[in-house]
Design a binder for these strands. Structure first.
Lengths: 251, 251
DNA sequence: CGCAGTTTTGATTCATCTCAATTTGTGTGG
DNA sequence: CCACACAAATTGAGATGAATCAAAACTGCG
């Protein structure tokens, strides 16, 4: 299986302990995108050791001092903030090649927890060094800015989802989004495993867990997908896409 | 009135046509924050001419090529995206000293419209030049990153508002947010004028216009504020703050 | 003064939440 | 390996908050 190959590869590169972007199969998705060979070798010197995290452990917590941003090497993460009334609220899920921790730049304090949803590895990128290096390498600077901007756009898309879509549509949009991201990583866009619980999905989508469950059931009944616990199979992607274009009012 | 002073000041500095951050009374809120005198003078060379926009006019539109970010010198803006089904959706309001347009960095194409809510002036900051200059001035680079990060944090806060707060609470949070921002600019935090329509507020808050109207009426009936059309007076800020800490379920 | 657009208010409908019960899954220790 | 307890997910019935539909009041502008 794909998973196994991935694991073998990790074991292999991890033997060197030191992360090396230049050797990483995620470099087309991650920070190094668009860098030349020579530039990449500079980046190699900056990226700290990789860091293993067991499922459930955190990379940083709310209130921690900000010192670095992180790239997912393998595994799956969630980030969650604390609401005014003390509840956790998932603000994002991160998979291989995705970067998180940028929330901490502005105040130099993290304002979310970053928690591994499965045994994972991250690459640590000390932010001060990253800034210093990006003063040397224009294409690195530019790409860093693009990554931050992409996060802004992503969050704004999420705002739109939350304010305009109905429960079922939110779930469909969520699954389509995962599908695309898996596809970009060479995994099947139609069949995948959810790493997060229904609880976490509902928190992320601004719904109650029962509503998410009902949405899954309803999409299944409409033959748009198959659900077996956390295993998802999208049966009718065009129809799911069409759902997203549906106005909020009852169609 | 305060407004008049502001206007006089504009007329005055505008006589020079060229914007000068070093002379700007917003420099503690805006891009130049934390720069030395010498660094400021470099920034002065980069900031393009100021740009006047009449109420209703746009600075950029969805699909426009991205070339610069903008700082509000005077006036008020909204940014709005297009939903899948073709409706406009307000994603933010920008006031003096706030920076917008960073959504365009990632794809080099803007994905929102930026529209003046009143006759306004913006300072145009060509992004390529800004990047080049930030390679010379570490504190400028750092602050640019903080500004982008702040936008990320802001958007995530909005996601939380949209997924956890009830209609009335959203409106209260919106007003409290405006209040703080006015206060930071030396205006009254308890009494201010809304530049945006109920329609725009409702779009921003993910509600219908009638619901926003009812929320205003209800907050008024509870003696938490006075509403006279677009003129708002916050009567009980502690109570409004307390509202925000209220769990989503019926109190 | 009258007209168009905006805002407020009211009555009803509908989607999601809440509460409750059941089923399914997971991990632990005998 | 199975039994048990506990957590996660599903399903159902009813309550509730916001949307919708409709109409009235207000605002601003020529």
């Amino acid at each position: 299986m794909r998973e196994n190959n991935e694991n073998l590869e990790i074991t292999f590169t991890n033997a060197g302990l030191q992360a090396a972007c230049s050797q990483c199969n995620l470099r087309e998705l991650c920070l190094p995108l668009g860098l030349s060979e020579g530039e990449l070798s500079h980046v190699d010197t900056l990226i700290g050791k990789r860091h293993k995290v067991a499922r459930g452990e955190s990379i940083f917590r709310i209130g921690d001092h900000f010192g670095a941003i992180y790239a997912v090497k393998t595994g799956f993460f969630k980030t969650e903030m604390l609401t005014e009334d003390g509840h956790h609220q998932v603000t994002g899920f991160q998979m291989a090649g995705e970067i998180f921790g940028m929330d901490g730049i502005s105040t130099e304090v993290h304002n979310c927890d970053a928690i591994a949803l499965e045994d994972s590895e991250v690459c640590l990128m000390p932010f001060g060094e990253l800034e210093a290096l990006s003063m040397q390498i224009p294409s690195l600077q530019r790409h860093l800015h693009k990554i931050m901007s992409r996060e802004i756009v992503r969050d704004q898309g999420m705002m739109m989802l939350l304010s305009t879509m109905r429960a079922e549509t939110r779930v469909a949009a969520f699954l389509m989004n995962l599908s695309q991201r898996f596809a970009a990583r060479g995994y099947s866009p139609v069949e995948f495993h959810l790493r997060m619980s229904r609880e976490e999905i509902s928190s992320y989508l601004g719904l109650k867990i029962e509503t998410v469950s009902r949405a899954f059931s309803h999409l299944r009944d409409a033959s748009l997908l198959e659900v077996d616990k956390k295993h998802i199979r999208l049966l009718d992607i065009p129809a799911l896409k069409a759902l997203l274009n549906t106005p909020a009012c009852h169609s």
